[in-house]
Design a protein around this nucleic acid. Structure first.
Lengths: 239, 239
DNA sequence: ACCTGAACACCGTTCAAGT
DNA sequence: ACCTGAACACCGTTCAAGT
């Protein structure tokens, strides 16, 4: 059905594309983990995470799928590395000492980075990445909380709440795209009608608000609420 | 490599398993959407969501994979229906009028249901299910918030925060399993050592708390914090 | 050191042919 | 009405053979 013929999906450089065996002639684009990662992100970004396969990534590079195994440990590992790479690209804001502002800044930096490749967001938010890349934001949040005089133990609890809220919010934001149809008036109206006729009294009463979704505003609302919570628990020393 | 031979994975009833063509003889287990759903959930629960394929579900039923297409619209649709089914099985607690308690009860009911099939949890929490099943918990939360005199608009915002927190929490809980190694002392110690040597000052300071994860307690903490937030915003009429 | 051919055991899905 | 055979275009991955 709707698939792309193999022959017309060749590498960007358009050279050394003849099927060959053994080491490439000379200046052919050398395969590397770096190149593979970029190709994978490219595929995800243009065709969605579902269409990432060893073969599609290889095609992007004008190379055979099996060659990738010389540089990554398999598909699962590749996806892990992609997630790490995206997360590692996040730039952590400098703390200013104002607890609320600092947490807000981290939240927005995190969101900005994960939404930079919306198609990859689910990957980044869902995979359990135990590497260093995943720890940098954790360190940032903990630092701010410790600076606010929370005990390490409470800081960890608050961190977990903070992260859960962050992930839940962004995940929905990413998934809501398809369902909420961006924000065109017609889509909202249609959705509103469905909700109104759901037969659920409170849902239909609130249909007009449920039908629309301003992701930016919604994110701010949730994050601010969570931060207000944190501030309310500030130890006496700082409050 | 590690796969199960086709011939020894036969249906529970163990009858009418010979390859045949056309309508089954007489009392053979009739295929139905119901049966397919149960088989799918069974596969997910025993082998994980990754191993659900049209063929594995069919094998569970002692039937050809293509036969499933007479009852479901394809794999994606099947997964949607599974998610809906799981969510639909949630029993919504009766509201008592105490806002905080009622929200807490809904949160726990939601968690209990999604964790009933831990392997399916990601599916339920991640898929965008626009059906009726997804709306029942929404109605429940909105009802409680409206009963507390929040405006429909604010109720929707609070609902979204609530759900994001819920989903983020449970998702992590489900994913943390593999990483945190349940809670055996040795796994915790190893993880703690890694965190301590991370080179990130605040992370290593809090390593002992980061290394362990009591999911029940953590969930309660987060949910209580979120609910405290809601209560703090109660309109004057109720506060 | 790094690439590919051949090969294997899978996938989802369509469609016509069977009962 | 509902099932399967044949078929198609895919998958991930191993391993030996090539340069």
């Amino acid at each position: 059905m709707g698939f792309v013929s193999t022959t017309e999906r060749r590498s960007p450089t358009d050279q050394a594309q003849q099927a060959r065996r053994g080491r490439p002639p000379k200046g052919a684009t050398q395969l590397s983990r770096e190149a593979i990662l970029n190709a994978a992100i490219e595929v995800i970004d243009t065709a969605g995470v579902a269409s990432i396969t060893m073969r599609s990534v290889a095609r992007q590079l004008g190379v055979d799928a099996k060659s990738l195994y010389n540089h990554v440990d398999g598909k699962d590992h590749l996806l892990d590395v992609v997630a790490e790479r995206v997360l590692a690209g996040m730039d952590i804001p400098e703390p200013t000492g104002a607890t609320g502002d600092d947490l807000r800044a981290i939240a927005h930096a995190f969101r900005a980075r994960t939404l930079q490749y919306p198609q990859a967001a689910t990957l980044v938010l869902t995979r359990q990445l135990s590497s260093f890349a995943g720890l940098a934001p954790v360190e940032a949040v903990l630092f701010v909380l410790r600076a606010a005089d929370f005990s390490p133990e409470e800081a960890v609890h608050l961190l977990r709440t903070f992260v859960a809220t962050l992930i839940g919010s962004i995940l929905r934001e990413v998934n809501a795209g398809p369902t909420f149809g961006v924000s065109d008036a017609e889509g909202i109206a249609r959705r509103r009608a469905v909700l109104e006729q759901s037969g659920l009294p409170t849902v239909s009463e609130a249909a007009v608000y449920l039908a629309q979704f301003d992701s930016e505003a919604e994110f701010d609302f949730t994050i601010n609420l969570t931060i207000a919570n944190v501030l309310a628990r500030l130890p006496a020393t700082k409050a």
